[in-house]
Computed example of a mutant assay.
Amino acid sequence: MEQTTLQDALNADEIAAANELTRSWLTGRAEVPAVASGLGIWPLLAVLATGAVEATLDELLEAAGLDIGQAADVPAALLDAVKSAPALNLALAAWAGPRVTLDPDWIGGLPVDAIGALTGDAAVDKPALDAWASRNTGGLIERMPVNLEEPIELLLASALSVRTTWRTPFDERAPFRSGPWKDAGTVLTACYREAVLRVSADTAVLTVPGGDDIDVLLALGLETTPPRDVLSTLIDAAADPAWGRPATELTAEAQPIGVTLLEYPSPQPQTGPEINAIVPAFKLDSDLDLLEDAASLGLELASDDEFAQFDRLAAQRLYVSQAKQTCTAVFSATGFEAAAVTAFGMDWMGAAPPQEMHRHRAVVVTFDRPFAYLARHRPSGLILIAGWVSELGA
């Protein structure tokens, strides 16, 4: 039987809702984190909503951008569809303590085999939860980001991972000679023969195509533009193929920030666009307390120990006492590359016939200061990971 794809499992409105949660959450924070996943939160809000009532339900559905029918269907549909995307892995699970009596209807709506048990003994529970996190992220994250020393009667969790290799490999070059990353980290260069760079008056957006339907998009804005605004513009550009204009249409009189034009002679005629990207490698990690963002995530009432209403979830009164996320992201050159310079000493035998030269026009975009990025599933447009690069990490 043919596997359901992400773009078939989720309609355009649902994908837009997931992406909008990413935007509203990250741009509503005091600082945009280095790496975060709105998609990791979105299905958990849906799962919570199916157990909530009244104002708590309304708040969760509004944050997730779903109605109650969609909230019941989206988690299982998302899990099933991710199986068709080789670069992605997504898992959802719940663990209940011995004192909680879960509603059978709520359990029935969860993905199969999603329920486990908590003993209440951190020495027993932690290794099992950490093993689940590691197993479902391919070892990228090795711990469950909750404090088991505090009482937890019910735990809901998602694990998301994405892996891809670049369609066009990067080369390494010398570190930047100026700017905030002077003499730091590894700088990568690649030349693209396709229109991967779009620009507006104040933003340049580069699409780095990966295999297995994954793209990573980078956005460089004006130095005076707040990170949240650069990220918001990047999300707009990711959703709209008509955003901005191709960098190949630029003129010398109108070059946006971070972009320069080059002309050079070549014995071969130019057959398409030439986009040269200069990007730093980065390795980023974040640990986020999501209750600090309760308003944008629809968790204000859900996390209120007096007013939370989850009557359809369990016989006992429950509220969200912890909400955390740990993330990691690595942008690097893939594989092994080697280079050699070979020179033959040659002397004149006579004048060579003149060779016709062709003028080439190339665009260079340089990410030599902080920028926004996101990873998306190319066919559906679903945003998987996003963040702000201000330090390059290890």
Rank of each mutant, 00 (worst) to 15 (best):
A128V: 13
D293S: 15
M349A: 05
T326E: 05
A329F: 07
K126Y: 08
A131Q: 08
L140W: 01
E62V: 12
W42P: 02
P111W: 05
R359I: 02
T27P: 09
G272C: 07
D202R: 05
T334K: 10
I15N: 05
A157Q: 07
V389F: 04
A34F: 04
P151N: 02
L299K: 12
T233F: 02
I235L: 15
A9K: 02
D202I: 03
V279E: 06
Q268M: 10
G258F: 05
Y319R: 10
E194P: 04
L234P: 06
A63G: 04
V82A: 05
A195L: 14
Y373W: 14
A239N: 04
D305P: 10
N89Y: 11
E59Y: 15
R359Q: 12
E391T: 15
D103G: 09
A372D: 12
A94C: 11
L392N: 01
V205F: 12
I152R: 01
Y264G: 11
V364Y: 01
H360G: 03
Y264F: 15
P246M: 04
P379D: 14
L61S: 05
L26C: 10
G258Y: 02
R163L: 08
A362M: 07
D305W: 08
L160W: 11
D125S: 05
R177N: 11
L60N: 03
T137K: 00
I275M: 13
A295K: 12
T342G: 00
V100N: 03
R312L: 15
I15P: 02
D73N: 12
M346T: 13
L250V: 13
L148K: 03
T189G: 10
A294V: 15
A375Y: 02
P379V: 07
A247M: 13
A76M: 08
G211K: 13
P86N: 06
P267N: 09
N147K: 07
A159S: 08
S158V: 08
D368I: 03
I41V: 14
L39K: 10
D113C: 04
Q270D: 14
V196C: 09
V32N: 09
A72F: 10
L197I: 10
A294Y: 12
E142S: 01
Y192Q: 07
T168H: 13
L261P: 08
G345I: 13
P209A: 03
T271F: 12
T165P: 01
A386F: 11
W25T: 04
L288Y: 00
T203V: 14
P353E: 15
P43M: 00
A64V: 00
A174N: 10
A123N: 10
T168W: 12
P379M: 04
V230P: 00
P169Y: 12
S37K: 02
T248S: 15
L10C: 06
G40I: 00
V389P: 02
S332K: 11
N276K: 07
A254D: 15
L39W: 02
L92T: 10
N19I: 08
M346D: 03
T366K: 00
E292D: 15
G210V: 02
F344G: 01
A339K: 07
E263V: 14
Q3P: 03
R198F: 11
